[in-house]
Amino acid sequence: MIHAENEKLEIQNLHLHAFGEQEGPVIQKMTEEFLQLPETISINVYRGLRIAGNVLFSPFSLDDHPEKKCFLLAPLGVLPEYQGLGIGRELIEKGVYHLKLIGADAIFVLGYPKYYASRGFAPAKVLPPHHKLVGETEAWRMLEIKPGSMDGIGGTSVAAAPIMNPMFWDTSGRPD
């Protein structure tokens, strides 16, 4: 989606603050790169005139099933003062609605298993990029958008360039 430069900067800064001092700068840079790709879908939730949360969806390719229209959810960020108020859930719901409208088959995510399971994401059968680094296999999840579209689908996958760095796929040391 096309964004005015000031909105892009606001989204990048949101992710910087949402992910904190340690992860924030890396996620901010990844967000900047994603927002430069025309195929990235960016969804915002506002509180007043301020963006309180943002989620990005980028095309996600299944090596053995190139006909499938899939997306990777990353990153999802909520400003610290709005965390715990349902904005993450709202972002996912708005994203699912948008992806249904454009005929997507599924959304994939590498995230906190309990959080994404509570939002309908099931363990994924498709291997994530750099799957040998994903020690916490429960963290790799999928949400089917078109019912039955992912039945029997497995194999390997490739994400958009901004998130293909192996460091994004290493789950060692992450809390669940």
Rank of each mutant, 00 (worst) to 15 (best):
Met1Ala: 09
Met1Asp: 06
Ile2Cys: 05
Ala4Cys: 08
Glu5Val: 13
Glu5Phe: 12
Lys8Asp: 06
Glu10Met: 12
Glu10Asp: 15
Ile11Pro: 07
His15Asn: 12
His15Val: 07
His15Thr: 08
Ala18Ser: 14
Ala18Cys: 07
Phe19Pro: 05
Phe19Ile: 10
Phe19Thr: 11
Glu21Phe: 11
Gln22Asn: 13
Gln22Ala: 14
Glu23Lys: 15
Glu23Val: 09
Pro25Leu: 05
Pro25Arg: 11
Gln28Tyr: 01
Met30Glu: 01
Thr31His: 04
Glu32Gln: 14
Leu35Gln: 08
Gln36Ala: 15
Leu37Gln: 13
Glu39Met: 07
Glu39Trp: 02
Thr40Gly: 06
Ile41His: 11
Ser42Gln: 03
Ile43Ser: 02
Val45Gln: 12
Val45Pro: 02
Val45Ile: 12
Tyr46Leu: 13
Tyr46His: 14
Gly48Pro: 00
Ile51Gln: 07
Ile51Tyr: 04
Ile51Cys: 10
Ala52Ser: 08
Ser58Glu: 00
Pro59Lys: 06
Ser61Tyr: 12
Asp63Ile: 15
Asp64Ala: 15
His65Val: 04
His65Leu: 05
His65Phe: 15
Pro66Arg: 13
Glu67Met: 04
Glu67Asn: 09
Lys69Ile: 13
Cys70Gly: 10
Cys70Arg: 06
Cys70Leu: 06
Leu72Ser: 09
Leu73Cys: 03
Ala74Val: 03
Pro75Arg: 04
Leu76Thr: 11
Gly77Lys: 01
Val78Pro: 01
Leu79Lys: 04
Pro80Ser: 08
Glu81Lys: 08
Gly84Met: 09
Leu85Pro: 09
Gly86Ala: 06
Gly86Asn: 03
Gly86Thr: 03
Gly86Glu: 03
Arg89Met: 12
Arg89Ala: 15
Glu90Cys: 07
Glu90Pro: 00
Glu90Trp: 07
Ile92Glu: 00
Glu93Tyr: 09
Lys94His: 07
Gly95Gln: 00
Tyr97Lys: 10
His98Thr: 05
His98Ser: 09
Leu99Met: 01
Leu101Asp: 14
Leu101Ala: 15
Ile102Val: 12
Asp105Gln: 04
Ala106His: 04
Tyr115Phe: 11
Tyr116Asn: 01
Ala117Met: 05
Ser118Trp: 10
Gly120Ser: 07
Gly120Gln: 05
Phe121Pro: 09
Ala122Glu: 14
Pro123Gln: 10
Ala124Glu: 02
Ala124Gln: 02
Lys125Glu: 14
Lys125His: 13
Leu127Phe: 10
Pro128Glu: 00
Lys132Met: 13
Glu136Gln: 15
Ala139Gln: 01
Trp140Glu: 01
Trp140Val: 05
Arg141Glu: 03
Arg141Met: 12
Met142Leu: 07
Leu143Ile: 04
Glu144His: 00
Ile145Phe: 01
Ile145Asn: 00
Pro147Ala: 03
Gly148Tyr: 01
Ser149Thr: 08
Met150Ser: 04
Asp151Val: 06
Asp151Asn: 14
Gly152Thr: 05
Gly154Leu: 07
Gly155Cys: 13
Thr156Gln: 12
Ala160Cys: 05
Ala160Arg: 05
Ala160Ser: 13
Ala161Trp: 04
Pro162Phe: 08
Ile163Glu: 01
Ile163Trp: 06
Met164Asp: 05
Met167Lys: 14
Phe168Lys: 03
Trp169Phe: 07
Thr171Glu: 06
Gly173Leu: 09
Pro175Met: 10
Asp176Gly: 10
Asp176Pro: 13
